[in-house]
Amino acid sequence: MCGRYATTTNPATLAVELDAIDETGDKGFDPNYNVAPTNQVLTVVERHDRDHPEDPASLRLRAMRWGLVPAWSKASEPGVPAKGKPLFNARADKAATAPSFRDSVKKRRCLVPMDGWYEWVTESGGSGKAVKQPFFMSKSDGGLLYMAGLWSVWRDRGQGEDAKPLLSCTILTTDAVGELTKVHDRMPLPMPREHWAAWLDPDHPAPEELLETPAPEAVSDILIRAVPSLVNSVRNNGPELLDQLDEAEAGQISLI
């Protein structure tokens, strides 16, 4: 699963690095060390220019709501989609046939850049009370991770032509591999740069193999470290959430 992550990248800087068009507008993206579902998040898509659809597609950075809202969702009130199960994750092996995701698999795939993601390991403490220790997974060299995602455009059909689009996304997950199996049985699906062109291509379906569970080598550079329980509350947000705990501070739980 991937229900919380951290991202400190600046859209303007990332746009230069990726040679992408920054379409995040006035959303504003300050460093967020505790990204949670329904937050506005940064995504990478490849789309054609609306005014010049015959031109080649280009990389674009877009702000989206984390928690995909299917295009067919009804409105609970004007301009607001009805509440339902928060679709912040989608199983990569089932997304192509799931009603909420299948259209996005065909033509709306994205990348979700992040510094790393959190998972929790729970064990019984000495008093019988469950101990819940958060861990943070990130690249050992400190670089960005790019996870495979899907996105959607929702409009309140009752508002007709005046309806404003709501862009939303979900992060694909797959079976955990390698050392990550010690933390959780699922993990976000990483998308290596050599597969970006095929994954983001708006004109063709993605090769089915890109949705398969990767080999352990794909995550061999992922560093796993215990971090403070401050991250347990979404109200906490700051670089101290990523401080590494030593074995004594992590207490009962060990991944060895």
Rank of each mutant, 00 (worst) to 15 (best):
P31W: 08
V219W: 05
A98F: 09
P113F: 14
L18Q: 02
A63M: 03
V35G: 10
T7K: 12
G149M: 05
F88A: 10
E77G: 12
C169N: 01
P56Y: 11
T97Y: 01
K132F: 00
G84D: 07
P216L: 12
V234Y: 11
P56C: 09
S168G: 02
N232S: 14
W196V: 13
A197S: 12
L211Y: 15
V177D: 03
D26W: 06
A96K: 13
T13P: 12
P11T: 09
D51N: 14
G28D: 08
H195S: 08
P56A: 10
K132N: 06
V183I: 00
G158A: 02
L189M: 07
P70Q: 00
N89E: 09
G158S: 04
A218R: 11
D203V: 06
E17D: 13
A92L: 02
R91Q: 12
P11D: 10
A197T: 11
A218S: 13
K83Y: 14
D26A: 11
R225T: 08
D51A: 12
A250S: 03
L230Y: 01
K85H: 13
N237T: 13
L255P: 11
E119Y: 05
A75V: 15
G160I: 04
V44K: 10
W154D: 08
G143H: 10
W120M: 03
D55P: 07
L242E: 01
D19F: 08
I171G: 00
K164G: 00
D103V: 10
R60A: 12
K74I: 08
L172T: 02
G116Q: 06
N39H: 09
G3Q: 00
E77Q: 15
V80G: 08
T43G: 08
R47E: 05
S138E: 11
A63G: 02
D93C: 09
V80L: 09
K94R: 15
P192F: 09
Q244M: 15
A6W: 12
S168Q: 00
Y33P: 14
D221L: 14
A248I: 07
K139H: 12
G238Y: 05
G143A: 10
G67W: 03
L210S: 00
R235Y: 15
G125F: 05
W72C: 06
Y118C: 08
A226T: 13
P134C: 03
L18T: 02
I171K: 06
V112G: 04
G178L: 03
D51R: 13
E17Q: 14
W151T: 14
C110T: 03
R193K: 15
D185L: 02
L223Q: 14
V183H: 01
L18A: 03
V153K: 06
K129L: 05
V183E: 01
M64D: 02
P188L: 00
K107D: 07
A92V: 00
A75Y: 05
G84M: 07
Q159Y: 05
C110M: 00
E194R: 14
G116M: 04
G158I: 08
D115G: 10
G143W: 14
L68H: 01
G125V: 04
S58M: 11
P11H: 09
N34C: 01
M1A: 15
S220D: 12
T38N: 01
G25Q: 06
G142T: 11
N32A: 05
R108I: 10
A15V: 01
T174V: 13
A57M: 04
R155E: 10
E249T: 05
S58C: 13
A148H: 09
L61T: 09
S100R: 03
E77S: 15
H184T: 02
